[in-house]
């Protein structure tokens, strides 16, 4: 008799649960330091304390808000510029070399300049996150437009479609899978850059919680913030996949969906 493999989400829990149990046992049996490596039971207690006081929600919402705004701005800018340079040779020749040169600058290197230009408050943080999201989305859209099958464009021409109709009815649907993949990459980078942004100097946010944990010597606070980051990042990516799934159900790929 063939044994049924558990549901994918259960499969995904096997590794973290096993590690958690091993970690807990190792600390309880004195094999690891509970102060530097607080076990899952201590993390759960810290998370509960932070949640009950409302601090966790405040920090998580602040981080989520920054990621959402920065992601939206970076994704819109990356999509628009990618479409422009992908569709127009002159625009590509004019803009792409400069964009690629700016992309080569490590984004963290912008931090001092952003603080100088935009101040220590929200604008500089959102700009940094937006910058992190912008590049993968821009590159994804640009390369996807350049990679659209010429033969499909010819179908549109033979059937008398205007340039705009070809863009909307052929190019855009053809680009959609790469665009969504680039948005997912951009979202991941958005969560990466929000930490850098909140370390720049924030009074709330999960990045602030990390810094606070470090300054107070609370490894459990740091780990709780990291776990919340992981959960929020996974949830945001899952939401993006769920929203985009109906748009990509036509794909003829190995998985047929993302």
């Amino acid at each position: 008799m063939k044994l049924a493999w558990p549901a994918p989400w259960i499969t995904g829990l096997i590794l973290p649960l096993t590690l958690g149990v091993a970690w807990e046992l190792a600390v309880r049996h004195g094999m690891m330091s509970g102060r530097l490596m607080p076990p899952p039971s201590r993390l759960a207690a810290s998370a509960w304390t932070l949640a009950r006081s409302g601090d966790l929600a405040v920090h998580a919402l602040a981080t989520l808000g920054r990621v959402a705004i920065g992601f939206a701005c970076g994704a819109v800018a990356g999509t628009m510029l990618g479409m422009l340079t992908g569709a127009n040779v002159t625009a590509r020749r004019l803009l792409d070399p400069s964009v690629q040169a700016v992309r080569a600058i490590p984004s963290i290197a912008w931090v001092p300049l952003f603080i100088l230009w935009l101040g220590i408050f929200e604008t500089s943080k959102l700009t940094l996150i937006g910058l992190g999201v912008f590049f993968p989305v821009y590159l994804g859209v640009l390369s996807a437009i350049q990679g659209v099958d010429r033969k499909l464009i010819e179908v549109g021409r033979v059937f008398g479609l205007s340039v705009m109709s070809i863009a909307l009815r052929i190019t855009w649907p053809a680009v959609l899978p790469s665009w969504i993949a680039s948005l997912r990459t951009g979202l991941g980078l958005g969560f990466m850059f929000v930490v850098a942004a909140e370390l720049m100097g924030a009074s709330e946010g999960l990045g602030y919680l990390l810094l606070d944990g470090q300054q107070m010597g609370r490894a459990d606070t740091i780990l709780v913030a990291m776990i919340v980051f992981a959960l929020l990042g996974k949830a945001a990516d899952g939401l993006l996949v769920a929203v985009s799934r109906p748009l990509l159900c036509w794909q003829d790929t190995a998985r047929t969906r993302l």
Binding site: K151, L152, V155, F159, G160, R169, P173, L176, W250, Q251
Partner: peptide, 28 residues
């Protein structure tokens, strides 16, 4: 508009259903 074509490969638009692919040729 009086000229239409069938190519060596079907060149169907993969994001359109069979019916929508046929309708695609009837834009006028």
């Amino acid at each position: 508009p009086a000229i239409s074509a069938v190519f060596q490969e079907p060149r169907l638009l993969p994001w359109l259903t069979t019916g929508a692919n046929i309708a695609f040729g009837g834009g006028r």
